[in-house]
């Protein structure tokens, strides 16, 4: 392998330290926090509840509606509060990533709102948001076939790494940085895949394999946090 060293000294397949907590927002039907290194996301689920306006109701199945929002001070240069083109796209991506495991047929004419807020950003915010949302949906008692595990793989110059942080995302040397956020079920089905950069098919295959391996660690973190939120006494 190459002599490539990650700026924070992590191994290529090493995730940042993860923290997760379920049940952080008393008003919500389900809620969770997911932290990966310096990236912190929180998510709240409200619903299923009747969809308004009525013309948006689907008589066959419930609707999943996600919103992704970054705190203005979560990044170095303040971002204007409120929705942006970026947040609009990510919100939809998150819906697509989560919906495959939800049994929405049971809730015709309703909507399940998932609100994600990024408190602190150091890359991988959509992945952290998806992990928080996955736990929040389970906490809300929405019937799910599986949890969704999300991680950003990356290619820094020629080296494939897992859980890219901001310093790595801004990496310019050699072939530069390629960002590959991936979400999957615990059985490994991919429900979300994005890529920005340059990569060949062989390298992508390796990135997906590494992400799949990492997802098992995230699965354990999510399960542990969900178990801790329930008092079994």
């Amino acid at each position: 392998m190459t002599e490539f060293k990650r700026p924070d000294g992590r191994k290529e397949d090493e995730l940042r330290e993860m923290k997760a907590k379920v049940g952080i927002i008393p008003n919500a039907d389900g809620s969770a926090m997911y932290q990966s290194g310096n990236t912190i996301a929180i998510a709240a689920v409200y619903g299923p509840k009747k969809m308004h306006p009525q013309h948006k109701q689907d008589p066959k199945r419930g609707v999943l509606r996600c919103t992704y929002n970054m705190n203005s001070f979560s990044v170095s240069e303040r971002i204007r509060p409120g929705p942006s083109r970026r947040s609009t796209e990510i919100s939809k991506i998150i819906e697509w990533s989560l919906e495959p495991v939800l049994d929405l047929d049971r809730f015709p004419n309703t909507v399940i709102d998932v609100h994600i807020n990024i408190i602190q950003a150091d890359a991988g915010t959509r992945c952290a948001g998806i992990n928080a949302a996955s736990m929040a949906l389970a906490h809300a008692g929405i019937p799910m076939r599986d949890l969704i595990l999300s991680i950003a793989a990356g290619k820094l110059d020629k080296t494939i790494v897992i859980d890219v942080n901001k310093a790595e995302e801004d990496f310019k040397e050699g072939e530069g940085s390629t960002d590959i956020p991936i979400s999957m079920t615990s059985s490994g089905e991919i429900t979300h895949l994005q890529l920005d950069g340059k990569i060949n098919s062989k390298q992508l295959k390796k990135a997906i394999e590494m992400a799949r391996k990492s997802s098992k660690e995230i699965y354990e973190v999510q399960k542990k946090a969900l178990k801790e939120s329930v008092n079994l006494e």
Partner: peptide, 23 residues
Amino acid sequence: VSNKAEGSVRVKLGKTEVIVGIK
């Protein structure tokens, strides 16, 4: 509570919670 902010706090009054950040 948010390390990219110039200063940030979380304030809780009972179950009410806000986060305030300064840039």
